[in-house]
């Protein structure tokens, strides 16, 4: 009890006083999660749209795999990427292990299936008449396709937001690929996991508050986007 109340007052001091250690940790989390999510959006949205639009053999299998990968354990991704980025690994010569870039790569792999699978679901959930209606009003195939994308816009943004929510809160990849290096790869989750051991309970709580707040915002945003989808 005593520990919690002391921790809480310390956490508030950190939050309100913009403690440099604290802000550095939050900045790393935001920067890395934002970059990896942007990368996922750039790659997974087109892939999702393609899968939704095209009919090809094994398509159902691809969608099933994407859906399974949505719940891919972060430590498994961490392990796989670790084995490739280590100096012993396939891409070892790049020297990327224990860098922010490594974290971005790992988180990108985590976010990709979520964004892609949710994009597929959104596109398939669209009214089947959208395309033919656009054509009937004089749209070229490209314009009709853009119309489809535009109809799916809230769903696609929701997919990206869900991806962000996952990578922001994950710890396995950040820990294994980033190494929890102070001011460099120490993110909110790795700091909570490791720094509380050092008796930095207030810091852990303050970071936990940030994490909860972001999770709350992400969920509010998702709810709003859902309301705007037909």
């Amino acid at each position: 009890m005593d520990m919690l109340s002391e921790g809480l007052s310390g956490a508030l001091r950190l939050l309100l006083g913009f403690d440099p250690d604290f802000t550095a940790i939050v900045a790393v989390s935001v920067l890395v999660a934002f970059t990896s999510t942007s990368l996922a959006a750039l790659t997974a949205v087109p892939v999702g749209v393609l899968i939704a639009q095209r009919r090809f053999p094994g398509r159902g299998g691809v969608i099933a795999v994407l859906n399974t990968l949505m719940s891919l354990p972060t430590v498994v991704v961490g392990l796989l990427v670790y084995s490739m980025l280590s100096r012993n690994g396939l891409f070892g010569s790049l020297g990327l292990l224990y860098t922010r870039t490594a974290m971005v790569i790992g988180q990108w792999i985590l976010a990709f299936p979520i964004v892609a699978a949710l994009t597929v679901a959104t596109m398939e959930g669209l009214d089947t008449r959208v395309h033919s209606t656009a054509i009937s009003l004089g749209a070229s195939p490209m314009q009709a396709f853009l119309r489809l994308l535009s109809e799916a816009r809230f769903g696609i943004v929701a997919a990206v937001v869900a991806g962000f929510g996952r990578v922001f809160a994950e710890v396995g990849v950040s820990m294994m690929l980033g190494g929890n290096i102070k001011t460099y790869t120490r993110s909110i989750t790795t700091a909570i996991a490791l720094e509380t051991n050092r008796g930095e309970f207030a810091l852990g709580l303050a970071l936990g508050i940030v994490l909860l707040t972001v999770a709350l915002l992400v969920n509010i945003l998702l709810a709003l986007l859902k309301r705007r989808t037909p």
């Binding site: 033919s132 009937s136 070229s140 037909p230």
Partner: peptide, 19 residues
């Protein structure tokens, strides 16, 4: 064909409006 379609106005049955 696209040019022809733009020369006419077509109301399809059970039309769908865009969001």
């Amino acid at each position: 064909l696209l040019a022809l379609r733009r020369n006419i106005a077509y109301l399809a049955q059970n039309p769908c409006l865009f969001n």
